[in-house]
């Protein structure tokens, strides 16, 4: 078959492992918070690079976000991606998953032929896991969600995907879209010469706006987002402590009763 053309969708997210909550306001303390590449997306890049290395071809990383999201694209180049596109435009701001999927989908269409789109299963900030499936719908290609192995044979994709209580083996024609989970692979480290080259003026990072991808601005950003956020709040977890006293056997009985009342047992 011809050389593989693989697009990888990646996202810059706050490092939620380091997130601190303001104890007074209950809101996220963003100051000084580090931004990282979404963890699942590292597995998407790795999966793409392995297929490219096995079959030949090209890996293109695409991210939508503010200008500083270029950092995660440079990381993709440091891992070995061939080129990158940053979709950044005021018109893209405030997008929900539908508007984001539309924007990413338009970019992929604009880039022409592709064999495979790979995305991380979900992002650690929004946790929706909707982008992959929605982009597949937009592009009108088959989708394999939560893949853990990927193989290409005779112009077809063979993949194992995890379902609720089993693993499915699926086969689908190309082009297709796949989302991968962290079980898919062990992402490689950054290769310093490539990472350093990603910061040079001639690095293959292109920045595209709404016009470059031919987007209908009614479908991007806040305008294209049917999701309306009513309110955000930190749920309160009230703690009630009951101290058991008495003989050990009585305390054990009371404890079992309490656990049954709460349906723990």
């Amino acid at each position: 078959m011809a050389q593989l053309d693989i697009k990888v969708l990646i996202k810059q997210v706050p490092n939620t492992a380091e997130v601190k909550i303001d104890p007074h306001t209950g809101t996220l303390m963003r100051e000084g918070m580090e931004s990282i590449i979404n963890p699942d997306d590292l597995h998407a890049i790795e999966a793409a690079l392995r297929l490219r290395d096995a079959h030949g071809g090209k890996v293109t990383a695409i991210s939508m976000g503010p200008p500083q999201a270029v950092d995660v694209l440079r990381e993709a180049l440091g891992m070995g991606a061939d080129e990158c596109f940053l979709l950044t435009d005021r018109a893209f701001a405030g997008a929900d998953t539908l508007a984001t999927s539309y924007t990413l989908g338009k970019c992929i269409q604009r880039l022409g032929r592709f064999d495979l789109v790979i995305a991380g299963h979900q992002a650690i900030d929004g946790d929706t896991a909707q982008i992959g499936p929605q982009v597949a719908e937009f592009l009108d290609v088959p989708q394999v969600i939560r893949a853990i192995t990927l193989e290409i044979k005779d112009n077809e994709l063979l993949a194992e995907r995890t379902a609720e209580e089993c693993t499915e083996v699926v086969k689908c024609p190309l082009p297709a879209l796949v989302t991968v989970t962290k079980e898919a692979n062990d992402p490689r480290y950054l290769f310093i010469p490539l990472l350093m080259a990603a910061f040079e003026a001639e690095a293959p990072v292109k920045v595209w706006g709404s016009k470059d991808i031919g987007a209908d601005e009614a479908s991007t950003g806040l305008k294209g987002s049917p999701t309306k956020v009513q309110r955000t709040f930190t749920p309160s977890h009230k703690k009630k402590i009951e101290k058991l006293t008495g003989a050990p056997a009585d305390m054990a009985r009371t404890l079992v009763d309490r656990l049954r009342e709460r349906r723990v047992l």
């Binding site: 950092d71 440079r74 990381e75 440091g78 480290y189 950054l190 310093i192 990472l195 350093m196 910061f199």
Partner: peptide, 15 residues
């Protein structure tokens, strides 16, 4: 610089 920061983080993770 941004490049130095990226280098530092990559190395830190590796170590």
């Amino acid at each position: 610089t941004p490049a130095e920061h990226a280098f530092r983080l990559a190395l830190r993770k590796f170590i």
